[in-house]
Design a binder for these strands. Structure first.
Lengths: 144, 144
DNA sequence: AATTTAATTGACGTGAACGTAAAGATAAGA
DNA sequence: TCTTATCTTTACGTTCACGTCAATTAAATT
């Protein structure tokens, strides 16, 4: 159970401690764990991945943090859910709830990502055809 | 030769006059045309498209305006080139220069766009496989 | 136990990308 | 020509997403 501190998490996720504190402050990241005021924050390795995912989504989707928060409002709840899950959930109804919720979050992210992918693809196609036009004009210039 | 004013261009391109002036100010857009101090800026329809392209690149690539400027530093020069071209360029050597430069700009944009597309695609795949894992767990829960 | 290193909170600072308000000037329409 | 809508420049304001002190405190190291 490797204990990570804010600096480690920041380095591993490719960001800074300040950013992590800020994300916690605006509620984008959950408070690292129970700790007394003034004590160091401690994290687990899964937290690194969660943060890295967030940063990737933010970068690739270009969302303001507030929207990102809405989008993954799941993710922090997920930490709770995971704990609940690993604590051993008996009730299959509850299990189904958790899984379906999780799937819902993934689906919302997927739809945004796909929209982006489409926009990017369209842009790529347009650039490609632009390139072809220029290219053919260049060939016309070449003496046969 | 429909004369457009800054408000029209803004509306058509989906932005605001302020943004257009700002882009001009930082040299991302070329000064609309020769005009005396205090006179209204005037634009042509091709300017709308150029602006829209810029906004799209900015949005989809998430570049800071300064980098966007480097990237399409071409585009404003291109306005000049186009005028030169349509003015009728005789020298085939010059024609080739212009076309090759244009292709170079397109290629630089293409490579950035492709990188983004790859990142987005990878993210999509990861989300998909995440979804599948959840989905299969849900199926396991279902009584046969 | 002493020292060094990294973290804490609090608060103010900063750069990017515009928004907005003021005081006019210009252009288009009646 | 008069009015009205839209534009001009100048300049200060604003939001987001952190950066950067400063004064302490907590952990890790020796």
């Amino acid at each position: 159970m490797t204990e990570l501190r804010i600096g480690d998490v920041a380095r591993l996720a490719g960001t800074t401690p300040r950013t992590i504190r800020y994300y916690e402050e605006i509620g984008l990241l959950p408070p690292s764990a129970v700790r007394e005021r003034g004590a160091h924050r401690t994290y687990a390795e899964e937290d690194v991945e969660r943060l890295a995912d967030l940063l990737r989504l933010k970068d690739l989707l270009g969302l303001p943090l507030e929207e990102l928060k809405q989008l993954v409002e799941a993710e922090d709840a997920r930490a709770g859910l995971r704990r609940e899950w690993e604590g051993g959930v008996e009730d299959p109804v509850r299990q189904r709830q958790i899984l379906e919720e999780s799937r819902g979050h993934i689906d919302r992210q997927l739809s945004l990502v796909r929209r982006r992918r489409d926009e990017i693809s369209k842009l790529e196609e347009e650039l490609l055809s632009k390139r072809k036009r220029v290219q053919s004009r260049l060939r016309e210039l070449s003496p046969a």
